[in-house]
Nucleic acid binder design. Structure first.
Length: 525
DNA sequence: CACGTGATTGTTGGG
DNA sequence: CCCAACAATCACGTG
């Protein structure tokens, strides 16, 4: 797979409320995102990937939650149009990166597993952009992109950084990405952990925390690796991914891990109960009327809030599709978030649907009340504290949600990737929290992110290949078409802005990518 | 008692 | 009222 080179042009947005920052990424196509953050001399963290992300409109929004202000150098995105891979640049000029064949070359068997093999078996060396040296990178990032906007490529190997392959969740579906999964290589500096360790407080970013919470393999792995590498895993006793001290090429290992993880954590295992269908023909016991009603589950509330947005985005989406999406989103939510999510209060509160009430009228398109609610400071806090991005584990249903994304050549990557981000910056969390704010249009010229801190962040975005073909991504193809019409391009009207901020998972705003199956948000410590 | 499995409930919307 | 997919929870059975 040709891993793209990082292309600057991404605008990070910092959420003022956050100690760190919340960055939004707009990406088109299916991609995996990896971030390389460099702080001072060391790489601070590597971000996870957006798994299974494909934009409904061809555009996706990702979120990066940073514990502290960062400077993002840039993001690059690749799109695969079946035949070719494109790198989307902020400038809007697509660059042919590689042919699809490259991708195809790697067929993995990670079918059900979302966990990507640590090392890409077949992957040719990913071409990652990175700074030649940290400093350079730092400066370049902070101050600006290189003239051409490209960062010098380096070989991660040289850096002695462990490379983590993050599979995109897309892979979950066996067919989906099986062969083409975009993999993300994340570079983590060995010292990464150290940084966190210094940080007191429940920062989300703490590796340990993350590790514990992260169900997502990519993240977990990343973290684990970080911890291992650094040898500073102090905070958390056992990172889930601890086993993967060394990235092993074997995907199986990871898979196992993932599975075990599920079992251990009790997280939804791939529900194997198809049998459930056999469900008793008769629902017995209807429950007596007298029985006090149980509070609505958080998931139910979440579903209720989210489905509207999804539906709005994709009217044609069936219940099943919506359900899958919501599930993936739910998955991506951290435990805390789930609990703290609107539902929580609601559940406790007799009044259901607080979110909706709290928020201005739901906005069908983008508004994700539930999500929005997540963004509350407390939520953010929670999020930081460990909310994990979701578990990669689940595989989406075979059906694809997204219609035409893949099918048609990716909209010109040209649309600004980061566009949506800028809007949020200044807004207070609350404001942002409400998804209500008008959808951000993806404008080519995003505002420069506010980067309070000098830290440079190098972001590499590995784009997973967009579904080459319908066959490859059944769900996508299946998706009701029309999405394409919605917002083919960058122009996606979606209100990504607010949305994202609130939605941790990195799902694209519903508006933009509503249908994306789970993608992950990136968490930077 | 711990664990696993199945059933139930909840979400929305259409038939 | 049932069904769709999914998650969460509870009940029950088994070791």
């Amino acid at each position: 797979m040709g891993w793209g080179v990082g292309v600057p042009g991404l605008q990070p947005i910092e959420d003022q409320e956050l100690s760190g920052g919340l960055i939004k990424l707009a990406i088109s196509g299916i991609f995996s995102l990896s971030l390389l953050i460099m702080q001072q001399n060391r790489t601070e963290a590597v971000a996870g990937a957006f798994s299974r992300c494909w934009g409904f409109c061809g555009m996706r929004l990702g979120f990066l939650l940073l514990t502290r202000p960062w400077c993002i150098a840039g993001v690059f995105q690749q799109k695969f149009d079946g035949e070719s891979a494109y790198v989307g640049m902020s400038d809007g000029n697509p660059e042919l990166l590689a042919t699809s064949q490259t991708y195809n070359s790697q067929n993995e068997s990670n079918e059900d597993y979302e966990i990507p093999p640590i090392t890409p078996p077949n992957l040719p060396e990913p071409s990652l952009l990175h700074l030649g040296d940290h400093e350079a990178g730092y400066h370049s990032l902070c101050h600006g992109l290189t003239p051409n906007g490209l960062l010098p490529a380096y070989s991660y190997q040289a850096m002695d950084l462990p490379a983590i392959m993050v599979s995109n969740m897309l892979a979950q579906d066996s067919h989906l990405l099986s062969g083409q999964l975009p993999t993300i290589q994340e570079m983590v500096h060995s010292e990464v952990a150290a940084y966190d360790s210094g940080r007191p407080g429940p920062l989300l970013g703490r590796p340990a925390m993350l590790a514990s919470h992260m169900s997502a393999l990519s993240q977990s792995q990343l973290i684990s690796q970080m911890g291992v590498r650094s040898g500073i895993a102090h905070s958390s006793p056992s990172p889930p991914g601890s086993k993967s001290a060394t990235p092993s090429p074997s995907s199986s290992t990871q898979e196992e891990e993932s599975e075990s993880h599920f079992k251990m954590s009790g997280e939804k295992r791939p529900s194997a109960d198809p049998g459930r269908k056999a469900k008793n023909p008769k629902k017995k016991k209807k429950k007596d009327p007298n029985e006090p009603q149980k509070p609505v589950s958080a998931y139910a509330l979440f579903f209720r809030d989210t489905q509207a947005a999804i539906k709005g985005q994709n009217p044609s989406a069936t219940f099943g599709d919506v359900s899958k999406i919501v599930a993936s989103m739910w998955d991506s939510l951290g435990e805390e978030q789930k609990q703290s999510s609107p539902d929580q209060g609601e559940t406790k509160n007799p009044q259901a649907n607080p979110p909706a009430k709290m928020l201005p009228p739901k906005q069908p398109m983008y508004a994700m009340p539930g999500l929005a609610s997540f963004l509350t400071p407390s939520d953010l806090q929670a999020f930081r504290s460990g909310a994990s991005p979701a578990s990669l584990a689940r595989t989406l249903g075979s059906k694809s949600l997204l219609p035409g994304l893949n099918a048609s050549p990716p909209p010109p990557p040209s649309f600004p990737l980061s566009t949506p981000l800028h809007q949020q910056l200044p807004l207070p969390p609350h404001t942002q929290g409400t998804l209500l704010s008008p959808p951000v249009s993806m404008s080519p010229a995003p505002q420069p992110p506010i980067l309070p801190t000098p830290m440079a962040l190098q972001v590499q975005l590995a784009v997973s290949p967009s579904p080459p073909g319908p066959q490859d991504f059944p769900h996508v193809s299946e998706f009701p078409s029309g999405s394409g019409s919605r917002s083919p391009g960058p122009s996606n009207p979606t209100s990504s802005g607010d949305w994202d901020s609130s939605y941790p998972s990195g799902e694209c705003g519903i508006s933009t990518c509503s249908l994306l199956p789970r993608d992950k948000s990136l968490y930077l410590t």
